[in-house]
């Protein structure tokens, strides 16, 4: 499953906007299979937390589906 590292810029209900290492914004939907709950995303926005998201690409929407969100503090490899 592809992964993306970045900063959580906006969190709204079960959706979040991630700014990746290149400064590009990506819209993520929290999958219903993910362990995280929508309420936990607001804390990520408050802290502008860096996270690593394992995601899949759904059909029919222009956005990405976040399956797993991990807090990330180290340096992202290229």
């Amino acid at each position: 499953m592809p992964q993306m590292t970045g900063t959580v810029v906006i969190a709204q209900e079960g959706r979040l906007q991630l700014m990746d290492e290149d400064g590009v914004g990506h819209l993520f939907l929290l999958s219903h299979k993910a362990a995280a709950e929508a309420q936990q995303l607001y804390a990520l926005q408050d802290r502008q937390q860096r996270v690593r998201i394992a995601y899949s690409e759904p059909r029919g929407v222009i956005g990405l589906l976040a399956e797993k969100i991990e807090l990330f503090d180290g340096e992202a490899s290229a």
């Binding site: 709204q12 959706r15 029919g60 929407v61 222009i62 956005g63």
Partner: peptide, 8 residues
Amino acid sequence: WNNLPADE
């Protein structure tokens, strides 16, 4: 505002 994706 609501950070909604587009339905493609």
